[in-house]
Measured scan of single mutants.
Amino acid sequence: SQQIATAKDKYEWLVSRIVKNHNENWLSVSRKMQASPEYQDYVYLEGTQKAKKLFLQHIHRLK
């Protein structure tokens, strides 16, 4: 749906803004993002596993 696509774009923007180093780990980054509406919306719509998967894809691109 359009809502999910929009939430994903915003979440990816948030991840790219916060995660600048491929050594970052999911636990510390997800804690930093918990207060962000972009993170909350995406997790609400798609779940934590998908959020983690996108985070890991971003990390992989930074290597």
Rank of each mutant, 00 (worst) to 15 (best):
S36W: 13
I59H: 07
L54I: 14
G47M: 01
H22K: 12
V19Q: 04
N25T: 14
E24W: 05
L27M: 13
L27F: 11
Q3G: 11
A7S: 05
S36R: 13
K8F: 05
S1Q: 15
Y44R: 15
S30C: 10
W26G: 04
V19S: 03
Q34S: 10
I59T: 09
Q2Y: 08
N23A: 06
P37G: 06
M33T: 02
K52F: 07
L45W: 06
S36A: 14
K32Q: 10
Y11G: 00
V29S: 05
A35V: 08
Y39A: 04
Y44P: 03
Q57V: 07
L62Q: 06
K50R: 08
E38D: 09
W13N: 15
K63F: 04
V43L: 06
A7Y: 04
V15T: 02
L54E: 01
V29K: 04
Y42R: 03
I4S: 09
A51C: 01
K20F: 04
A5T: 12
Y42I: 00
R17K: 13
V19L: 03
I59G: 01
K20G: 06
H58P: 04
V29H: 00
L54V: 14
A5H: 07
S30Q: 15
E46F: 08
S30H: 13
V19G: 00
L54P: 01
D9N: 11
L62F: 03
I59L: 13
Y42Q: 04
G47I: 01
Q2S: 10
N21H: 12
K50P: 04
E38H: 05
R17G: 05
Q3A: 11
H22Y: 10
K8L: 04
D41T: 12
L14D: 04
K52P: 04
M33C: 00
H22R: 06
T48K: 14
Q2L: 08
Q34I: 10
Q49G: 13
K20I: 07
N25K: 13
H58Y: 10
Q49I: 10
Q2E: 13
L56C: 00
T48V: 14
K32M: 10
L56A: 09
V43N: 03
M33R: 02
K52D: 03
Q57Y: 07
Y39G: 02
G47K: 02
V15N: 00
R31D: 08
N23H: 12
Y11D: 00
D41P: 00
I18Y: 08
A5D: 10
L56T: 12
L54C: 09
Q57G: 09
R31E: 12
Q3M: 12
E12P: 07
V43G: 00
L62V: 06
T48H: 14
E46P: 01
